[in-house]
């Protein structure tokens, strides 16, 4: 299945949820905030929220700043 993550086209396995997508990408849960098609997916819904073909996904973390 093809999605766009942080502006980058990516092919990922079919049938993933947000939680399994983060596991697939080897990110630590809880340290990455998730938006799909500009709507935030709350952490409590990561296990149930399905990732679909052509979804535009944003994965965001904290970095140094002033």
């Amino acid at each position: 299945m093809n999605v766009v993550i942080n502006g980058q086209p990516l092919t990922i396995p079919d049938g993933l949820t947000v939680r399994s997508l983060l596991e697939h990408l080897e990110f630590t849960a809880g340290l990455v905030a998730v938006e799909i098609n500009r709507a935030i997916v709350p952490r409590a819904e990561h296990h149930a929220a399905a990732v679909r073909e052509d979804d535009a996904i944003e994965l965001v973390q904290l970095v140094g700043g002033g």
Binding site: Q8, L25, F27, T28, L59, Q61, L62, V63
Partner: peptide, 13 residues
């Protein structure tokens, strides 16, 4: 702190 996109090529926290 600031918020930025994660680096898909460096997945370590």
């Amino acid at each position: 702190v600031a918020l930025r996109r994660v680096d898909l090529n460096d997945r370590s926290p």
